[in-house]
Design a protein around this nucleic acid. Structure first.
Lengths: 241, 241
DNA sequence: AGTCGTCAGCTTGTCAGACAAGTTTCAAGC
DNA sequence: GCTTGAAACTTGTCTGACAAGCTGACGACT
């Protein structure tokens, strides 16, 4: 099959940063604890200082550690500036993907509810424009793939924006990116013919109508219905006790 | 008062990485676009290669760019490995904090609902243990501050864990950290005396009872009630149309 | 003409040493 | 006891160098 990505030479700094991070996590070092000096780390890992510095730089960016010139490297206390990464580095299992999708679904449902409560006319215009773009993609079967998927994306972003909560919008854009590739098959030629795109569009319209009517509960249910259907289209299965 | 953090000497690599990131964002560079070489960037910013490399290292960790040895630096396509950071670098405005809190509230409400549907006996045990720890903190007024806040944290984590969704749990831990400091005043001596801790505990028990009874809708409402009350205790106000 | 190997030049990855800037420590001096 | 000041140490930055890997062009061969 020749599938998958070819093996890239591993970067030393990545290995070092992962190692240090696991130290902190596994040993449960309290915030403020001082880590070994860069020099010590160089000797311990057998690498140059540049590598150690890059590793520490990454940890600092992640909000994991804090450096003070002249003093040393310290375990940072959980800060607002910390970064969030989804679990599972690569080659995620189906279950993990389903978990990520569920998280997104949860937030998006709440966003739809808030959007219905708070949307203004400008929000409606954006939503409407995205809907129309998808309608066009549905009719003009010529290469609508890209436009359809893009409009789909725009619609979801517009819902998030209508909440008036920038943080929420930012997070949904992030989560949406994780599935940007998965929106393509729905709007591909095959998807259009199989009616997947039309089904998605009908679900979108339900969301839009609810937001238009300021029906918070309805918007929530419509969003859940849409994402459940999308999960089914993707073949994501999760145990449902 | 001497309040606030004293000015730290700014790091060059941070400035450079921010600059490059804003290039990518503002110029809307498509994934795959090649960025200037490190050498060029050195000349343009007037810094050494080590600084540029640390900056690029951070961008790579954020999933923003991708480097290929021998080829150059390229804009990465949005990947599963990318990192999410909340908006607002430092000194967040009250509105931003309220937005973050709302996002957390939204996810936590959904988590409570899922927890009620999926919890098993082990989950109940963890929840129950956290509740008891808070009860103890309520009674033994001696220095219960730390224990109470810690148990409060543990309770919320236990709810997240009961969903069986590791990604969701991971995210809620992340969001919870943003407010870990804000849980202290509730469980401080003053908070105990003012009844804030008792009120919070009553709200916790409502959540627990709903999860115990597998009452998804009830758990959701109890979580929302708890977090709304917490927001009020924090003095977070958001326009509520 | 068209195809394929080779190689020079460029780019990133790593190393080593040096100095600047800031912090901590500790002992001398009051 | 307290301050002061120098010395040792640590991180931040710079410079130069070499190794590893990619790209494109040039020439040899079919």
């Amino acid at each position: 099959m020749m599938s998958g990505k070819l093996a890239r030479p591993p970067r030393l700094s990545d290995a070092v940063s992962r190692q240090i991070e696991s130290w902190i996590r596994e040993m449960g070092l309290a915030p403020g604890t001082q880590l070994p000096t860069e020099k010590t780390l160089c000797e311990r890992f057998g690498v140059s200082r540049a590598v150690v510095r890059e590793a520490i730089s990454r940890l600092r960016a992640d909000g994991c550690v804090e450096t003070r010139q002249g003093a040393g490297v310290f375990v940072a206390q959980p800060s607002v500036a910390a970064a969030f990464r989804l679990l599972g580095d690569e080659a995620r299992s189906n279950g993990e993907i389903a978990d990520i999708f569920e998280l997104r679904c949860l937030v998006e449902a709440g966003a739809a509810e808030l959007a219905a409560r708070r949307r203004d006319d400008e929000d409606l215009a954006r939503l409407s424009a995205a809907l129309e773009a998808m309608d066009e993609a549905l009719l003009g079967a010529d290469g609508g793939s890209e436009n359809g998927a893009q409009a789909d994306d725009a619609f979801h972003v517009a819902v998030a924006a209508a909440t008036g909560n920038a943080q929420l919008e930012h997070f949904l854009v992030f989560m949406g990116r994780q599935f940007s590739a998965s929106r393509v098959p729905t709007w591909s030629a095959a998807g259009l013919q199989a009616g997947r795109a039309a089904a998605a569009q009908a679900e979108h319209r339900r969301i839009f109508d609810a937001i238009l009517a300021r029906d918070a509960e309805g918007a929530r249910e419509a969003a859940i219905a849409h994402l459940s259907a999308a999960a089914e289209r993707l073949g994501l299965d999760r145990r449902r006790p």
